[in-house]
Amino acid sequence: MDTQVLLMHLLSGLSLSGAGNLNRFVAVDTPMTMTNARQYCRSNHVDLASLRDAQDLQQLHDMRSNSTRWIGLNDDPATSMQTIDVYTNSWKWSFEYASGYLNFKSGEPDFKNDEEVCVWMDSDGSWRNQECSSLRHFLCFSGSPSKPDYHLVFEMKTWEDARDHCRFWFVDLAVIKSQKENDHAKSKFWLLFVQLSSNAWIGLYREPWAWQDGSLSEFRHWVPGQPNNMGGNAMCVKLVPDGFICTDCRDVYPFFCTRALKQTILKITISSDLDLTDPNVQDNILQQFGATLTNAGKTDFHLSWSVPPKRKPEPAAAADEEVCDPSSSALMSSALEISVKTTFNQSQQN
């Protein structure tokens, strides 16, 4: 059966009414501090609003176009100055390797102008944070994070360009997870220090702003000149008509919460002469299924295959029983039971 015909059979009789792209957000008009707003959202909904894209931003503006309200983006440098974590508001390695080791110089990191989020190694092996656009030599690693070897590159690059260079020629910018490895890395470029009194990028960096619900969304819509935490207290974000502005978390504003949602799961069994175990066939079916749902105006869904456990083999046929001609098996339809999970956003009934 042709894939498109198969999809028509799947969708025939399937009611999609009432499962559209409903509003993900709730506007709360009572002014609160960021802390109290977060507590309210977590108690009554999900969390302060996290935005995935420009469509989410437009939804919020359509709801309260002229108001200033908290959203769930924030930063807290104080809690991460001497800690490392692979999650929000934390130091990370370019290679996405978790390590608790840090070796910052006394008084570092200082987060000057909220822009010094990349790290370089000094001549004594200590680390300092700096703007990622600065030009420096850099240190790459080869092998694996559990057993790295380090390589000094004498070219001068920004942190991002250095990372790309290391990923092309080696593995990544240097990952350093112990004092022994730090000494090893420093030894690779002692001559550079002696001759040039220079230093080198390593792979540590910090993502300054994160969504409080743990969302990995990279969507940002800063007002020009933002974020600008010059006073050191503007660590929370309010949404204004022009975009995001960081401000003191103790200020009082109304806010947006993310609405609690439900799921609708549809399970479908498919029989076809297509090879349904072929990943290419599966991808083709799900792509067309997704396109059909999108064309129907459904955007909040997820599709996946779930193959049932293999059945126990049937007992061998008796000698006097008729045996099928193997040559005829190509004409038989293959059958595969799958679960197509289609998740639609629906408002929680309060």
Rank of each mutant, 00 (worst) to 15 (best):
S197P: 05
C246L: 11
W211S: 05
C166E: 08
E155I: 11
N228G: 02
L135M: 14
P208F: 00
P148D: 03
G231L: 11
K147S: 15
I245P: 05
N199A: 15
A234T: 11
S178D: 13
F193H: 11
F189G: 02
A234F: 00
E218L: 10
F189S: 06
A234I: 04
K180H: 12
C249E: 14
L204Y: 07
W201H: 02
N233D: 10
L135H: 14
E218W: 08
Q212R: 05
S142L: 07
I245N: 04
V171R: 15
N229G: 10
P145G: 03
H151L: 06
G143H: 03
A200C: 07
L192S: 11
P145E: 06
G143F: 05
G232K: 01
S133L: 09
D242F: 00
V240R: 08
Y150A: 01
A185Q: 03
F170Y: 15
H184M: 15
F138T: 03
D149V: 13
K180Y: 08
V240T: 10
I202C: 07
G232W: 02
A185H: 01
C140I: 04
P145K: 01
P224A: 07
G243Y: 04
Q226I: 00
P241H: 00
G243L: 06
C140Y: 07
V252H: 07
F193E: 06
D164F: 02
W190G: 04
L204H: 02
R206S: 08
G232R: 02
V237Q: 00
F244W: 02
A162Y: 00
F141W: 02
F168R: 15
W222L: 14
